[in-house]
Design a protein around this nucleic acid. Structure first.
Length: 285
DNA sequence: AACTTCTGCAACCGCAGAGGA
DNA sequence: TTCCTCTGCGGTTGCAGAAGT
């Protein structure tokens, strides 16, 4: 624990990388990999600290880095994931192949935050006592759980990680993505407030650490800007119903529930919400 | 054309967790 | 168990180019 001793300041270069330095780093890593970042610059003959090398490699030089502008779909994915995960840029980046946490962080601060502000996004939610929740202000960081977002009144039983294999893209193909048509901040924004759909906040399960982490298996590693994949739904080949592969505490989903209307990631969360609250009938939107 | 302000983004800094000795 | 090192993360800074005056 404790702070890592920073690189010896003396004699080490800071600031922008030159193409020559990039080339040295790339060829060294291609030849030797990056076992020890601290030792790497010395071995590679770079006058940089290991931290700087690591950052340069991860954010810029890795072969699978996708450069250029973010697509509308990517931006909306970021907005949704940020709504769920907060400023956990690395977790968000894990769901956007080819994008780095730094890049996402930058795009959030320079574009998306402003856009959301302009659109005044305040998705409302209502509890059983009629209290209205504003996600943007009530999803808070629980100090006892580091930076996990929490929603007041939603702490009871844990949502457990699925034990079954994750669905492939083809398996969940019946859940069509409509992410590009998702309205951010518009009249169709996520309002879980409806006579028919209102459900108990108290019965909503605890979303614990494993829920948010990769190892939960809940969010597929190969998630590739397709919001339907975010939902992680599985297709029951016998019934042709789409089922959500999570929450062991819900042993069986009602078999008569085709979920074809669940057409984007946010709808999934809505659906999760409904089901966790007692598997009530899903309303038509 | 010159200067100022704004914007975007690469890179840095410091903290904290993991894991080994 | 404690200490130490390494790594990863998120917040912040500072520079360069664009836009505005």
């Amino acid at each position: 624990m404790g702070r890592a001793p920073c690189c010896e300041k003396m004699g080490l270069k800071k600031g922008p990388w030159t193409p020559e330095e990039d080339q040295v780093l790339i060829s060294y890593i291609q030849r030797n990999g990056h076992g020890n970042w601290r030792a790497l610059p010395k071995q590679a003959g770079l006058l940089r600290c290991g931290k700087s090398c690591r950052l340069r490699w991860i954010n810029y030089l890795q072969p699978d880095i996708k450069r250029g502008n973010f697509s509308r779909e990517e931006e909306e994915t970021i907005i949704k994931l940020h709504e769920m995960l907060g400023n956990r840029w690395s977790a968000i980046a894990a769901r956007l192949p080819g994008r780095t946490d730094n890049e996402i962080k930058n795009v959030w601060h320079t574009h998306l935050k402003k856009r959301l502000k302009q659109n005044q996004v305040t998705p409302a939610m209502t509890t059983t006592n009629g209290e209205s929740y504003d996600f943007s202000s009530t999803i808070k960081t629980d100090p006892s759980h580091s930076s996990k977002p929490t929603i007041p009144g939603l702490l009871e039983s844990p949502v457990r990680a699925p034990t079954s294999p994750q669905p492939s893209s083809s398996e969940i193909s019946s859940v069509t993505s409509a992410s590009t048509s998702t309205q951010i901040g518009g009249a169709n924004d996520v309002k879980i407030k409806n006579e028919d759909t209102e459900c108990s906040m108290e019965s909503f399960p605890l979303i614990d650490e494993s829920f948010w982490l990769d190892e939960s298996g809940f969010l597929p590693d190969d998630y590739s800007s397709n919001l339907s994949e975010l939902s992680g739904f599985n297709l029951d080949t016998q019934t042709q119903n789409t089922v959500a592969p999570m929450a062991n505490n819900v042993q069986e989903w009602p078999s008569d529930h085709g979920l074809s209307h669940v057409d984007n990631g946010m709808d999934f969360w809505y659906d999760l919400f409904i089901r966790a609250g007692g598997a009530e009938e899903l309303p038509d939107f």
